[in-house]
Nucleic acid binder design. Structure first.
Lengths: 249, 249
DNA sequence: GGACAAAACTTGTGCGAACAAGCTAACGGC
DNA sequence: GCCGTTAGCTTGTTCGCACAAGTTTTGTCC
C-alpha cells in the first residue's frame, strides 16, 4: 500500500487532471485538506509538495495554492522506456537490434557507468520505429554487473529496462541527460532514411538504480521533427559548454 | 536570513563539494547531524531532501545516505541568464539586439504567456556570442504586463531577466522547456555563420515568476557543437511527439 | 571458520503543536 | 466612494515524539 501522503497526492492529482480544480483556481487550504482526509497538516504538506515538484501547483506564502496545469504530461519522472512511452501516446513502437557484443569499456563509459576502465561491458545498437517510421538510433552500453541479466533477454525484447525491472527486481531512475544537436552520419542517414548531414537530436542518458548505481549509458539520436523533449525547471535544464565529447565538467 | 534547513543544506553542500565527504562515502546519520546542529531531525531531513533534489546524495531506507556527486554543475535550477551563465564558465558573453517591436500575440504565444489572444506583446530578436563567436539566435516574446519594464532597459542590456529582477524586484524561475533539433534557415545561417540546413539545437523556454506567472516565451537556436543541455531526472526530461508547432499536449 | 539469528542502527512515515511571515478581506474613518 | 488599518486566514519553518521498515553489525551456535 502506498504511503498516506501519496494517496492524498494521487487523489488531488486526479481531481486536478479531472477538472475539479481548474487551472488558475485555488486548492483547499492545508487545514481543510487535513480535516477532510483526517491527516496531520504535515502529511498534507508532503502530498502537495509532491504535486508542486510535478509542476501541477504553485504556492506563495500566505496565499492559497494555485493550480498551474490541468494536464499530465507524458511519463514525467519515470525512467525512459521507449515502448511504454510510445504506447502511452497511442503509437506503435517497433525496432530491431542491429548489433550486440561484449567489449571493453572506453574511458568515458567507465566513468559514466562507474566501472573500472577496460572492464567488459555490453554494447548494443538498436533502431527504433514509431508506427513503422524509423525515428531513433540507440547506442547503449550496459554495466558489467547487469550484462548477464541483459544477455538472457531475447534480442527482440522491446524494453530492456522494463524487463530488467521484472526479472531482476530492479528499480530505475534516470540520472543524467546530455542533449545537443548533431548532423547525421552515413550510418544514421541510412538507418533513419534521411540525408547525410541533416539535423538529429542527440540525447545521451544515464539510467541508474534508485540507489544511484549506474546501469546503462546510451547515445540516442532522434530524427529531427519526430520528438520534442520537454522538461520543467526545478530539476533544471542547464546548458554547459561542449567539450570534445560534450561531457559535463 | 535563510531558513535553518537551508543553512544546514548549504553547509553540507560545501562539505561535499569540498571533498569532506567524497563520492561514494556515507553522510553522517540524521540523528548525528541533528545533534551537531542542535536541530530537530525533521529540519535535517528538509536539508538533505534539498541535496537529494539536487542529485548530490542518494538514499535508501535503512542505509546511510550516499554521496553521488562531488562537483556542482552549472547553475542548476536557476533561471536562464546567458550572460551570467557564460561568466560562470569563464567565457565572455556578447551579442546584439537585431530587432525589437511591439505586436499582437499569436495564438501559441497567448497560451504560453497566459494573456488574451491579440494582446500586445514585445517581440525581440537577438544574436548572442561567446568569446566573439556567434552561438545563439534568440527570439523572445514578453508578456504585456512586463513590457513597460523591459522597454526602459537599454537595448545593449545583456540580461533582461537579471535587470528585471533588480529593477522590478521580480523573482524568476523557469517553467518549461521544449527541446528539439532543426535545420538552420537562411537568416539563422547568416547570423550564426553556418551553412543553411546545418543542425541547430532549438530550445523553447518559458520563464515565469516564482508564483507561476509567465513572463517570457522564447525560441532559442544554438549552433550545433557549441552547447550541451544537461539535466537530471527527477524533474524529468520527457520526449513527446512533435506536433505542427511542437507544443505539449 | 561459517551460517544463522538477534540486536542495534538508520531512514521513511505520521502525528500534533507552536510561532513567523505574508496575503486577503472586512471594517471604519474621511 | 475611497483609502488605510486591522483582524483573520494560509503557508513556511521548526520542534519533539512514535512507530514502521529496511540495513548493518554483532554475537552465538555448530
Amino acid at each position: 500500500m502506498p504511503a498516506r501522503y501519496e494517496q492524498i497526492a494521487a487523489e488531488l492529482r486526479e481531481a486536478i487532471l479531472g477538472g475539479t480544480y481548474p487551472v488558475g483556481s485555488h486548492l483547499p487550504s492545508e487545514a481543510a485538506l487535513a480535516a477532510r482526509h483526517s491527516a496531520a497538516r504535515g502529511t498534507v504538506r508532503q502530498a502537495v509538495a509532491l504535486l508542486a515538484s510535478e509542476g501541477l501547483v504553485g504556492s506563495r506564502q500566505g496565499a492559497r495554492r494555485v493550480v498551474l496545469r490541468g494536464e499530465r504530461d507524458q511519463l514525467f519522472g519515470e525512467p525512459y522506456d521507449f515502448a511504454r512511452w510510445a504506447g502511452a501516446l497511442g503509437h506503435r513502437a517497433g525496432g530491431e537490434v542491429i548489433g550486440r557484443r561484449r567489449r571493453k569499456a572506453s574511458a568515458t563509459e567507465a566513468v559514466r557507468l562507474a566501472v573500472c576502465a577496460g572492464e567488459e561491458v555490453l554494447s548494443m545498437l538498436r533502431l527504433r520505429t514509431l508506427d513503422g517510421v524509423p525515428v531513433l538510433v540507440e547506442r547503449a552500453v550496459y554495466a558489467s554487473w547487469v550484462v548477464p541479466a541483459v544477455e538472457v533477454l531475447e534480442p527482440g525484447c522491446e524494453s530492456v529496462v522494463g524487463a530488467l525491472g521484472e526479472t531482476a527486481g530492479l528499480a530505475f531512475r534516470h540520472g543524467e541527460h546530455l542533449i545537443d544537436a548533431v548532423a547525421a552520419g552515413v550510418q544514421e542517414a541510412r538507418l533513419l532514411a534521411v540525408r547525410r548531414g541533416s539535423p538529429l537530436l542527440r540525447r545521451r542518458r544515464l539510467t541508474s538504480t534508485a540507489e544511484g548505481r549506474p546501469v546503462e549509458w546510451s547515445d540516442d539520436r532522434y530524427r529531427a521533427g519526430s520528438v520534442v523533449f520537454a522538461t520543467r525547471s526545478p530539476g533544471g535544464v542547464n546548458p554547459s559548454l561542449a567539450g570534445q565529447d560534450g561531457d559535463l565538467r
